[in-house]
Computed example of a mutant assay.
Amino acid sequence: MIPILLAMPGNEQFALHLDRALGCEVGRMEVHRFPDGESCVRILSPVHGRDVILVCTLDRPDERIMPLYFAACTARELGARRVGLVAPYLSYMRQDARFREGEGVTAAHFARFVSDFCDWMITVDPHLHRYRRLAEIYSIPTRAVGAAADIAAWIEEHVERPLIVGPDAESEQWVGAVAERLGCRHAVLEKTRTGDREVSVTALCDVEAGCTPVLVDDIASSAQTMIAAVARIREAGMAAPVCIAIHPVFAGGAYDDLLAAGAARIVSCNTIPHPSNGIDIADAIGLAVGELLAEPLIEP
């Protein structure tokens, strides 16, 4: 039977993009929140015997995760063959160590939770730092789709003589992949973080005159890392940078703060709905979904 896509609230537009890439059915579902804050999920399309694909990006996860859990459980209860999750942005990956005594390694806790109610999961460029692969903490089949090809295609079309800049060592994997596809230079700054909104970045040096700096990072949350990097780029005498975020969380006034810091333009992938979305990664996700759906069903 044809797989069915079910979009959690706020993910309807991305589900339509994904449907165009997959050519499956977009189903109907209602999520109701009661006055006491509890949620009720009602699946209105037939799912018995079908592969169900839940689409739910996981920014601001604490308010999204219970409806998602109930949707997956309800699909199983109604006879779904398999229940998979497309989470373009995967939360709780940055707490991948015990940074202070008494803390938990939340990335691993969250992975066990998701692995318990989904049969597979696909995400985009998860924040893999101390973990090298999702399989280290997720017990279900997973795919980590890269956004580098789509980012490089956008830069090639919109930016002349780009210099790809990463704000910290962790960004090397993204800026290196993008620069390689474009055949241009890249540079990586060094970051020191002393708090949630306290970040310092080393100066940019040895740059080629006339280049347009393109600052690429995976997650823009408070945007303090990008803001500090923009300052260093301008101090180096370069033009105002184009800023590209794979995951535009932009908590609070972060987007406006980044513009005010001197970004020439802010563009993001559509892993999280945001006015800055300009790079569509649905086709890449669609290919990964097709691969997972083609794998044989493993009976418990």
Rank of each mutant, 00 (worst) to 15 (best):
E157Q: 15
C184G: 05
Q173T: 15
H127C: 08
A147T: 04
R181E: 06
V159R: 11
A251S: 13
G210T: 04
V214R: 06
I140V: 13
T142M: 12
I246N: 04
S222R: 01
G183N: 06
I164N: 09
V249G: 03
A152G: 10
P248H: 00
E180R: 15
S221A: 15
E235T: 08
A179K: 09
D218Y: 07
Q173P: 00
E190I: 08
H129Y: 10
R143C: 07
R130A: 03
R133T: 15
E180K: 15
Y255F: 13
V159G: 11
E198Q: 12
P141E: 00
L128S: 11
G166N: 03
R132P: 04
V242L: 11
A223Q: 02
V214F: 01
Q173S: 15
A220S: 13
L258Q: 05
F250G: 01
A231E: 15
Y255I: 00
Y255P: 00
A147E: 05
P213M: 06
V201R: 00
A147P: 13
I140Q: 02
A245G: 10
Q224C: 11
D218V: 07
V175I: 12
A152N: 12
A251M: 07
V230D: 02
V188T: 06
S221D: 15
A209V: 13
A169D: 14
T192N: 10
L128R: 09
W154Q: 08
L134S: 07
R143T: 04
I246M: 02
G253T: 10
C211M: 14
A220W: 03
R143Y: 07
T202L: 03
L128I: 07
T194D: 07
E180M: 11
I164M: 10
G252F: 03
I233H: 04
V188Y: 00
A209H: 11
A236V: 02
R132L: 14
V175T: 14
G195H: 05
Q173H: 14
I244N: 08
Q224I: 01
R161F: 12
D168E: 09
R181D: 01
E190P: 00
I137V: 13
T142H: 10
G210I: 03
H247T: 08
A187H: 13
D218W: 03
L128F: 09
I233G: 02
V230W: 03
E208F: 06
G195R: 03
